[in-house]
Design a protein around this nucleic acid. Structure first.
Lengths: 207, 207
DNA sequence: ACATGTGAACTGCTTCACAGCG
DNA sequence: CGCTGTGAAGCAGTTCACATGT
């Protein structure tokens, strides 16, 4: 497949959410203009984004809400269940483990890990916190798809290296660190400090 | 000032973190190439990013770590304390209220709000959870700089409208919704579902 | 008539490459 | 000589505008 821009993927994810809202609202047809307004973009952008994957609309009419939603789910790989492990049983890790929204969208937490003896063996939302030293062994057996890192920046690279060696292919990191992974592994960062600093810049430099 | 790209701001935030690590490590001089390697970019990119704000380096030598860090803090508006309120005393809101890293970087949580009678009046990391109905009144008195939204998508727009009316100028939203704000208000989203779906796409479409 | 799908034009970010200066 | 600072070139993502199909 031709290379797809990250920004396109993020918009597809948005469109899908809107389509699901329309589905629930009983709306059966939608135009690129309507999707664009909801998503804060333009109708041409919506059509271009979709055009990378095919032609899903009817000229003069628009898109069938249910059909387009189904296509997007297929494109995004959301027709299946992804096995997620959470590394770090601190506040954020615990909050994520308890978050029901993930499962609804096909992301199932299967285990929570930590390195602290205080946490290992304890319960987090029904999961017994596992010793991070068993990560590689477990990963080879259970083959998780996505690892979510909710650990401090120090040591994060070491854990990522271990995950990669165990065959993980996708990582979502909350650690405020720039992690190195081979090009075969997908890595996304959620860096709250960076977002707050962006806001600080905006506040400082807006009139 | 000439318009600065969001991507540039995010990199400056990265560079600053690296510089602070170098400062702690006792390294006094750094080249654009060294910053680039750490940040996964190129030396030309680093120099271009900095060039929007001035010339901070010495030709043939590089940048003074301490001086450049100071300049970046100034550019990003990190020389002062920003007052942060957290809206939503659920798992994520509670985790953020307790996170010490924010204060260290100049972001001080001054209050936590919720709409649930179960939560209002309770304690979250030393803060008495306030009734969200008092948000406007409090905001006018306390003038928070940044609101962090950790509430469900439903109702998020209404809360944002209230915040905007109360004079807030920066919002960091964890709600999986596309919020509308006037152009005078800076808005950043942290959308975990979107990041996970990006990873799902990558897993599905990588060979 | 209406809204899609898409080449072409445009905009803006990134990379190049080298002049400038310590 | 080495590394910065920066115009120019290159490239990627967005917007335009219209031919196409219903």
């Amino acid at each position: 497949m031709r290379h797809i821009a990250e920004s396109t993927i993020r918009r597809l994810s948005l469109y899908l959410r809107f389509l699901e809202e329309f589905e629930q609202g009983g709306i059966s047809t939608v135009s690129s203009e309507e999707l664009a307004q909801r998503g804060g973009t333009t109708s041409a952008q919506v059509r271009k984004d979709l055009s990378f994957f095919g032609s899903f609309g009817k000229r003069g009419l628009g898109y069938d809400v249910h059909e387009l939603a189904e296509r997007l789910r297929q494109i995004m790989g959301l027709g299946r269940e992804w096995k997620v492990i959470i590394i770090g049983a601190g506040k954020i890790g615990t909050a994520l483990a308890a978050y029901r929204g993930f499962r609804e969208r096909g992301f199932s937490v299967i285990a929570v890990y930590d390195s602290s003896p205080d946490k290992i063996g304890g319960k987090v939302d029904g999961f017994t916190v596992r010793d991070i030293r068993n990560l590689s062994r477990d990963a080879q057996r259970e083959k998780p798809d996505i690892a979510v890192l909710t650990i401090p920046a120090e040591g994060a690279q070491e854990v990522v290296d271990r995950l990669v060696a165990s065959g993980i292919r996708a990582v979502l990191s909350f650690a405020p660190a720039q992690l190195q992974v081979p090009p075969t592994v997908a890595l996304k960062n959620m860096n709250m400090a960076m977002e707050l600093e962006s806001l600080s810049f905006a506040l400082t430099n807006q009139d």
